[in-house]
Design a protein around this nucleic acid. Structure first.
Lengths: 196, 196
DNA sequence: TTGTCAAAATCGAATGTCCGTTTTATTTTG
DNA sequence: CAAAATAAAACGGACATTCGATTTTGACAA
């Protein structure tokens, strides 16, 4: 009976997740205390702990949400009758990076990679997210070969993993140096593929 | 005059650094306590603190040492009268990754990236290391263009940064999935460059 | 509508643990 | 034997989490 609406519940969840995201980006996962999250969210300890069992679960929720958003985007690209040109797919990716950077939370991504390598609680979720992303690039390569924009004898899995390989480096340069633009990235790829 | 030999001093330093490296790779930087390092190194608190002012300085020393080793390798490659083919340069890189993976400390690299994004004490050192590496790839691209293995009108800086972009992804896949071999990487690049 | 009530939601002080560092004592070194 | 090197206990602070107190909520009766 006295139970707040589902919208209220969902809004509170978002409130906590958004505040935590900002904190993690600013101070790092380990550098932000639960007190920080209480302060940033304007909520109390009791409130936050009603929604999440612990700090690790907050990160996990953020990761899972991101995975959902990404899966949707990937399905949109792969669902088209004809695959968009690679340049366009790259542009979609770099645009997403730019959006994250605008929110000043791009640093979260390298932090997630780090957690993936050793953290027993959030590691699996993050590896799962990255695996999904990698599958996406492999699927792109497979489609490219099928549609004739990749050599018929090319190793599609290898090409897909190589395409995937380029993304972390782009993200890293944007997170650390903020001087590697999508246009320059595109020019780099073009320059690399051009016959001498 | 009761002062132990410089060799002893250096050996102890290495002892601490190696132990810390293993701990960090296993449990993460934040997950390893100083107690862990005392235990793993077989030394006491007093001993460790005689060599390093604090935990952060241990990481910094590890990073600085790595930078030195890498700078030496890079100078070796660039110092040759004619630049080795790109495949060979890549092979040198992947071989280095394999060596680190064999020591079971490959996970340290993503952790360093994460620290670079937010840690005020070790961040600068790590960004410096990555900047050095990036300069290396740009220098490779410049040399390639000069030697005619890259289109004369290519943007060498863009190509260099793009080459650099591929390394984190290779490292990440090896650290997380252990299923992306140098050979497959090479095949992916070949497949990507082949004309359809 | 309004008032009431019990459950849900939130608050915030308190708790206990862990961890980096310091300090004091002991051993080793030349 | 004196100074350097190492050991080990101890400290102070920070942190994630808990828990009782308090407020807010919505169902329902009047």
């Amino acid at each position: 009976m006295p139970k707040v609406s589902d919208e209220h519940l969902e809004a509170r969840r978002r409130q906590i997740l958004d505040a935590a995201t900002r904190c993690f980006a600013r101070e790092g996962f380990h550098g932000t205390s639960m007190q920080d999250i209480f302060r940033e969210s304007g909520l109390s300890a009791g409130a936050v702990y009603r929604y999440f069992p612990g700090k690790g679960d907050i990160v996990e929720a953020i990761v899972l949400h991101k995975r959902e958003v990404l899966a949707e985007h990937m399905a949109g690209v792969l669902g088209q009758a004809e695959l968009p040109p690679l340049e366009e797919i790259f542009a979609g990716f770099t645009e997403a990076v730019r959006e994250i950077a605008d929110l000043d939370v791009l640093g979260l991504i390298p932090q997630a990679w780090a957690l993936a390598t050793y953290d027993p609680v959030v590691g699996p979720a993050i590896r799962g997210l990255l695996d999904t992303l990698r599958d996406y690039w492999v699927a792109v390569a497979v489609r490219m070969r099928a549609e004739g924009t990749l050599a018929p004898d090319a190793d599609a899995v290898a090409v897909g993993r190589t395409l995937f390989s380029m993304m972390p480096g782009f993200i890293l340069q944007n997170a650390l140096f903020k001087d590697f633009t999508p246009e320059e990235f595109q020019r780099g790829i073009t320059g690399l593929r051009a016959r001498v």
